[in-house]
Structure formats: C-alpha cells, structure tokens
Amino acid sequence: MATVFPFSAIVGQDEMKLALMIAAVDPRVGGVLAFGDRGSGKSTAVRALAALLPTMRAVAGCRYSCDPANATAQCDDCKARASGAKLKSHQVPVPVVDLPLGATEDRVVGALDLERALAHGEKSFEPGLLARANRGFLYIDEVNLLEDHLVDLLLDVAASGENVVERDGLSIRHPAKIVLVGTGNPEEGELRPQLLDRFGLSVEVKTPGDLPTRIEVIKRRDAFENDPAGFVAQWAREEAKSRRKIQSARERVDAIAVSDAMLTRAAQLCMSLGTDGLRGELTLMRAARAVAALEGAKAVDEDNLKRVAPAALRHRLRRNPLDESGSSVRVQRALAECFAA
C-alpha cells in the first residue's frame, strides 16, 4: 500500500481532525460527515486516520476480526469455538475500509463465493466490505454520489451493528460494528435530509484562507511527495503522541462524569435550536465526553460542550428558507445566548 500523509502533519482542519479523533475514541458517537470545498484535504485526513489508530486484539483466523474479550458481539463461528477452548487472538490494525464508488451490493454485504460455486459447486459465504470493516471505519468518498439504496443499507447496518445476508438458501448474520465516515462536496449534490442526521457529527471543511497556512500546506505536501518515507519518519514522533492520546482517552472515556448542570445546558441548547428528537443531545454528550477524555479531564465542562456543539448539531436544524445565515452561524448564536445566561 502506498504511504499515506501523516495525520499530525495536516495543517489546520481542526474541526475535522477533532471529529475523527472523537469517533476513534468513542465509536458510539455514530459516524462523521465532512462536507466541503474541493481540494481541502478531506480524503487525506480520513486516509491518514488509518495509520494513527492504535491496534486492537482480534480472534485469530476470524473473518470478522471479532473481539475475544466481548463474547456477545462475536460471530457465530467464534461463539461456537469459544464454548470449547480459549480463543487464540492477535493484535491487528483497526480496519479503515474504503468503499469505492461503483461498488455493487453483493460486494458490500457479502455474497456466495463465486469461484467455489463455479469450480466445485460449493456454497460458501464470501464476506464483503462490511465484514472487513467490522470494529473499524468504513469510508465513503463522495457520499452524495452513492446510490440511495446503498446509503440506506449502510446506515441501517451502522445503526444495528449487524449485517444479514440471505442468498441461495444461505442465511448469514455477522457483527458489523462500523463507524461511517462520509465526505463530499455540496456543489455536486446534497445528501438527503433524512440521511443527514443519521450521522453523529457533521463538519464543514473550508479551504484555509490565510496565506501562511496555505503556504505551509503546499510546502508539506510537496515535501511529502518528494520523499514520502522521509517525511513520514520526520512526523513519526508526533504520530505516536496522538496515538497514545487516543489510546488513553479510549480507556478513560466511560469514566468521564457528566454533571446535571452540563446535561441541562445541552438540553437548553438543543431546545433553543429546535432540533428534532433526542439524538442531538445524546451525540452532544457523547462527543463532549470524548473530548474531555482526549484532554485528560475527569468531567465534561462548558468548553467541551462548546467545542463539539457545532459538529453535533448543525445538521439537525430545520432549514428556514428566509434565514440567510448558515446553520453554523445559528449554532454559534444559540451557543452565545445559552452560555451567556
């Protein structure tokens, strides 16, 4: 595989990087959607994430990389084997699977193994991309160009954490706990509003406007292209630091306390923005917790809430055709009102 640009070397794009780190710390946040200008480094950031993620322990020989420690989330094979003896396991990288455009449904959900069916007349299941992405990330570039029925299917699997395949009398169900990461350019078509709020966090990516930042971006990119290995080595220390940060945040995120005062603030914020349902509050709290964990804090504070509120809420607002300001501005306005009181 080609060398990827190091995550830590990405200039700016703080909101996008934070959102990806939050998803890495707590996958329950429920996916990241990044919409933005052309050439602003959305894809680079997602691909770089793969190299940054700490490894995980998985059952050896399992096609779905089941977690040996979590018996309830294992596939049928692992459950059957676990009942007899202790499962062998090994360290594997957290999968970040690319869903290429033009992928067909059979390759996404898995289907019968064509080769064995043709050559031996055997029925055997060949897992698809969802199996490969279990316990990791599934990355969809140009998510707004993906066929609607595939987007529906993916969101469904991401929400249920399980993939069900029925084919030629074969009935397979396997765990598919995935974090969806979608990127796209709004000029090429919008995502259906029903799908928008199925993503936990939504970030707007803008090309940096100030000259020094832009120059730094070009310089680093040029240095990387001339000598990828050297550039990656140069950033190895930073990468290791970020990796340790994610690792320790993961261990502590469940112990982060959320005071009633903070919960009230979150609820007030959502109410003043008129977001539908409770998903906004839930995501807001989870994301704030992950940020607190990343910062090494013990409890969620106001700053954590403020930092994640735009990403957690901006895609859940009802559109007001007569309000010229974008959703980000409205969230900021509500934040200012809420926290001033």
């Binding site: 080609a2 869903l99 455009l101 067909t104 059979d106 390759r107 698809g128 991309l129």
Partner: peptide
C-alpha cells in the same frame, strides 16, 4: 458526475479499486 467521481478517485489514489459482481 458518476464517471467524474471514478476518474477523480483514480487520479487521487493512483489505483482503481473494484468491488463489483463478486470481484
């Protein structure tokens, strides 16, 4: 737009990834 997206993906990555029809 779909064709353009395929071209862009190949240009960006220097490889073409196919996940179609059991392939």
């Amino acid at each position: 737009p779909a064709t353009v997206a395929h071209l862009n993906a190949a240009l960006d990555r220097g490889e073409v990834v196919v996940e179609r029809d059991g392939v």
